[in-house]
């Protein structure tokens, strides 16, 4: 089985680009779990901030970017269709298992937010993974989050407050989920732990 160029190289590279390998599935799962654990710790130290935003609830939108990291980070690392949705839903499931107030709706929220990031990656046909795409994915997730939260939970807020919530969540999504994830993937690539992934082998992340 000496290495050779397969005759059907086009189809095989296409498949390599879009099909999930076992290592993709397992690493996506564990990254989602790890992000879930990190944000469980984050929430534990959040009590003080929650009290502050209690006076002006739309400000809480600024904090929400943290919950969006799983999808953007997962998408940037795995680079496979569905990675953003899968990671975001699984991270949501972990936070549900570790204890959260939102019950089963966490899974729905996770799916919606994952879709927000996923759509951006899809828009670029899973071919572009630069900073701009990462920031847009963060924005997509932030918009998905804030619009769905406005419909599901903040439905009775006056419209201008809802709008502010969207703005704050989008900023948070771009900076925390987009920028931080992109920086994290770049640093991860340098450590060599991503050697099994295209994201770890290409320098132009």
């Amino acid at each position: 089985m000496a290495s050779s160029t397969a005759p059907t190289q086009n189809t095989s590279t296409l498949r390599a680009r879009y099909q999930w390998r076992v290592v993709d599935i397992v690493v996506a799962s564990v990254v989602a779990v790890a992000v879930g654990v990190v944000f469980f710790a984050w929430s534990a130290g959040y009590t003080g901030i929650a009290a502050l935003t209690g006076a002006f609830p739309p400000l809480a939108g600024l904090y929400t970017g943290g919950w969006l990291i799983a999808g953007v980070l997962g998408g940037l690392i795995i680079r496979k269709p569905g990675a953003a949705i899968y990671c975001e839903v699984l991270a949501a499931a972990v936070s549900a298992l570790l204890g959260t107030q939102f019950g089963l709706t966490t899974l729905l929220s996770g799916a919606i937010q994952g879709v927000g990031a996923e759509l951006i990656f899809l828009l670029f046909l899973y071919r572009r993974w630069n900073l701009g795409v990462a920031l847009l994915a963060g924005l997509g997730a932030g918009l998905a989050l804030s619009i769905s939260e406005n419909i599901l939970y903040n439905a009775l807020w006056a419209f201008e407050w809802q709008l502010m919530y969207v703005v704050f969540a989008s900023i948070s999504g771009v900076i925390i989920a987009g920028l931080v994830s992109w920086l994290a993937v770049r640093a991860l690539a340098k450590t060599g732990v991503l050697s099994a992934f295209a994201s770890g082998r290409t320098a132009d992340v």
Partner: peptide, 16 residues
């Protein structure tokens, strides 16, 4: 958090 993700990916690659 970064340190944790590094360890998580190492574990995951071995587990896979």
């Amino acid at each position: 958090g970064f340190g944790l993700i590094v360890q998580a990916i190492r574990r995951a690659t071995r587990l896979a």
